[in-house]
């Protein structure tokens, strides 16, 4: 993990988490899945850097 920031980086994490859940309020499973996919693509584009993205993909894959 060279480029991906895995340290705490979000100010007011509880607020963000609540916001993340709030956008799913009242959505069906299908609508939520679609929203998540759009969100992933938007965030991935913001990151842009392929190495960082590759590390993020691997980080998401890693399970204990």
């Amino acid at each position: 993990m060279a480029k991906l920031n895995t340290k705490p980086n979000i100010a007011a994490p509880d607020d963000f988490y609540a916001d993340l859940l709030a956008i799913h309020d009242g959505l069906s499973k299908e609508e939520s899945d679609a929203l998540n996919a759009r969100l992933i693509l938007i965030l991935a584009n913001h990151v842009g850097d392929r190495e960082t993205l590759a590390e993020a993909l691997a980080a998401a894959q890693a399970r204990n």
Partner: peptide, 10 residues
């Protein structure tokens, strides 16, 4: 399909 449709929507 979900990602495909997300890309198209966006």
């Amino acid at each position: 399909r979900i990602f495909r449709d997300a890309a198209l929507d966006l």
